[in-house]
Design a protein around this nucleic acid. Structure first.
Lengths: 122, 122
DNA sequence: GTAAGTACCTACCTTGTGGTAAGTATGAGA
DNA sequence: TCTCATACTTACCACAAGGTAGGTACTTAC
């Protein structure tokens, strides 16, 4: 098989990229990189996720081997989600991007404002 | 204003994150981090993008101050896209993620296969 | 008895994303 | 004269993403 190339539309790496950069995938990964979370804790932490989307995102990440799911046969049910070693590695990169955004948001906002002014003047 | 927090559903950083991790945004950023590109060159490089989506993605990234657009009054028209200093900074993080995926794709595929086997057995 | 917490799943429906195809203006080359 | 190339824009349409709401099964607390 040829070496993976994200530029190629049919390369399997595209799928992995989509999963990792999905709307909720990024946030789940970052949250889990801090510590293990239970389903409901994750849902409270990641503002705006629906249960359906969180479950679906976790399934996808688990399927790709980034997240490990541990269910305990208790009542009420308890399920723990944590990163696998593979997940820890990607989460580092994703976290790097996210923290950059949080730190540099003002610069982006200033760039937007400057552009708006240019458009008005031009 | 409070410090940016991606976990908050209404934080502006969410918007920037969505733009940067959008389906085509990632690939455009990585392509431009290599070198300046013309519109059509970018379209040929990023496999699978439609003209509409490429134009839209570039507009968004330009609006956020990551990409600089330079149009020359020539016939046929010539437009160059390159990263701004701000764009160079994010592109580094994004590229880090992408190259990790390309390098570690086999590990992900092995994890998937292992999981499929587990499901079958269990 | 009733509501809440736990971790989901399923059906339904709306919204958004994104693809296709055509249009625009211009000059070069066959 | 016709086609191609450039860099888009616009209209149209289809599919998928994702939200809402309800169900499940059990226990604790009020």
């Amino acid at each position: 098989m040829p070496s993976p190339d994200v530029y190629a539309a049919d390369c399997p790496s595209r799928g992995v990229l989509d999963h990792l950069t999905s709307r909720w995938g990024v946030l789940v990964l970052v949250a889990l990189s801090e510590e293990m979370h239970r389903f409901s804790a994750l849902r409270r932490k990641v503002g705006g996720v629906s249960e359906k989307m969180l479950a679906q995102t976790l399934t996808t990440l688990e399927h790709d081997g980034f997240v490990e799911r541990t269910a305990y046969a208790e009542v009420p049910p308890r399920v723990e989600y944590r990163l696998t070693p593979l997940g820890v590695e990607v989460a580092e990169r994703v976290e790097g991007l996210v923290t950059w955004i949080e730190k540099n948001l003002p610069r982006v906002q200033r760039a937007r404002a400057a552009k708006a002014r240019t458009v008005q003047e031009g």
